[in-house]
């Protein structure tokens, strides 16, 4: 059996049930460490109970009560001694109901629990801890898997990578010319673009461009006939006429 540890107080205060008390006493008989702990606990308890009663000043009591309850005085506690006896439950099999503690009955709580079934509480606690840890790990793993699947490269339409686009520059330039062609004071480039575009289409049959005369990015300027020119850096490039 392991040392009594925190059950030393229960033994001294006689809060253990019958079987537990027998086992604890048998352990104390053979364990010097626990015997010393029990002796110290009994000695301390005896010293405390042997102290004379001290009557606190009435003003102190009312002041403390007032501090605890600003809205008004607390109702008087009918069973202060019983409340002081209450200890926190420590095993899964231990009930916390007040009647098990003997509150209000005038009897000692240990007498109420003397016939409860005994379970190895440390095993219960261990199993419970394992279950909690296991369920936590499973939950966390499931959550991570879910998040990873949500964060996978998506193949649906909404999250697809934007399509690569090559703007139809010549078409856009024509549309620009068409749009500005109706403005009465618009720039004459709107006239140039469709004129040269037609030549580029080969519909006019008015000549072809000299090699190298095309300005990059303006392929519409390539073929040319009499009446057009392209100038870069002041150097005029003019197509051969018919």
């Amino acid at each position: 059996m392991k040392h009594l540890d925190d059950r030393v107080s229960d033994l001294v205060d006689d809060r253990l049930d019958h079987e537990e008390r027998d086992r604890a006493l048998a352990h104390v008989a053979g364990c010097a460490h626990c015997r010393e702990a029990v002796d110290m606990e009994r000695y301390a308890k005896g010293v405390l109970t042997s102290l004379p009663d001290i009557t606190p000043p009435a003003g102190l009591t009312s002041t403390l009560i007032g501090l605890a309850e600003p809205g008004g005085l607390l109702p008087p506690d009918d069973h202060p001694s019983d409340a002081a006896v209450e200890v926190a439950p420590w095993g899964p099999s231990r009930s916390t109901r007040p009647d098990h503690l003997g509150v209000g009955t005038g009897r000692r709580p240990g007498m109420q629990r003397s016939h409860q079934p005994s379970r190895p509480k440390f095993i219960d606690r261990h199993r419970r801890g394992v279950r909690v840890a296991a369920s936590g790990m499973v939950s966390t793993g499931a959550l991570l898997v879910l998040l990873a699947s949500l964060g996978a490269p998506s193949t649906n339409g909404r999250d697809q990578t934007p399509a690569s686009v090559v703007p139809p520059m010549e078409e856009f330039t024509m549309e620009h010319a068409r749009s500005t062609g109706g403005l009465p004071f618009a720039e004459p480039a709107s006239i140039i673009v469709p004129a040269l575009r037609s030549v580029d289409d080969g519909t006019s049959g008015v000549g072809t461009a000299s090699p190298g005369a095309e300005l990059p990015g303006t392929p519409g300027l390539g073929p040319a006939g009499l009446g057009w020119s392209t100038t870069v850096d002041g150097t005029s490039l003019t197509g051969d006429g018919p």
Partner: peptide, 19 residues
């Protein structure tokens, strides 16, 4: 199509990313 009466600019918008 934008203009100030004398000059003009056309802005084309297409969904996607430039290639």
């Amino acid at each position: 199509s934008y203009s100030d009466g004398v000059m003009s600019i056309s802005v084309f918008e297409q969904p996607g990313r430039l290639d």
